[in-house]
């Protein structure tokens, strides 16, 4: 999922300081699952904004809405009729959702209430870890299902590097060396030869190096 973290409340309050009526809009998919941008968080953030502002002379009215996905027009449009008098929107979707909502309602200033951090998973309740670099050319088949792009601190393809000691990355004891893990897993599966099939020189054109990426599927288009 896309994992995000709410911005510090002081930063959000600073962004909406000049507005008297705003709407906080949440997203019911990825960021709701990571307890950062769903309906509950919309309620809490709206409440925090009201509590902070309504103790001052600079009062504020905060509307609360959550749509299933802010990255799809049919869901974003659901708030269209509720925007009368709304001077600004604080979106707590991921960066994709915030931008798309901003594009649809381009006359209304849009502010992010959330920092989009990474694509990750939930190893245990309350912990999120990054494990996909969204590089556009997946090599997990060669690496025992462990991503060298996201989980190696240097994103190298010929690890482990000299900073790897006893399976731990030089960044710190809490960071396992992805390449040590790759080696151990492939060894366990009797597939160490896979490493040799992995190209040392990754074509990063499919990643961000090639500019903003687009997928067009004519079979899915109207």
């Amino acid at each position: 999922m896309i994992v995000g973290e709410q911005k510090p409340i002081d930063e959000i309050l600073g962004m909406v300081e000049q507005y008297k009526k705003i709407m906080v809009v949440g997203c019911g998919t990825c960021v709701a699952i990571c307890y950062a941008g769903g309906e509950k968080e919309v309620g809490v953030l709206s409440s925090m904004i009201r509590l902070a502002r309504n103790q001052t002379d600079n009062k504020i009215e905060v509307e609360e809405r959550t749509v299933l996905r802010q990255c799809e027009e049919e869901y974003v449009r659901l708030i269209e009729n509720d925007l009368d008098g709304i001077e600004a929107i604080v979106s707590i979707a991921c960066g994709a959702g915030i931008q798309f909502t901003a594009e649809i309602f381009e006359n209304i200033p849009m502010f992010p209430g959330l920092n989009t951090t990474f694509i990750g998973y939930v190893p245990e309740q309350g912990v999120w870890k990054e494990n996909c670099g969204s590089c556009g050319n997946c090599v997990l088949g060669y690496t025992g299902g462990i991503c060298p792009v996201a989980r190696c601190s240097k994103s190298i393809f010929n690890g482990p590097c000299g900073g790897s000691q006893d399976g731990v990355c030089e960044l710190g004891k809490d960071v396992p060396c992805a390449w040590a893990e790759i080696y151990e897993r492939l060894k366990k599966q009797g597939r160490l030869d896979m490493i040799e099939k992995l190209s040392l020189y990754k074509d990063w054109k499919t990643a961000r190096d090639g500019g903003p990426r687009v997928i067009t599927r004519e079979d899915m288009q109207r």
């Binding site: 509950k40 309620g43 809490v44 409440s47 925090m48 009201r50 509590l51 309504n54």
Partner: peptide, 10 residues
Amino acid sequence: DILYIMRAFE
């Protein structure tokens, strides 16, 4: 729920 507490303060 945290919202009960927030609403109480509000």
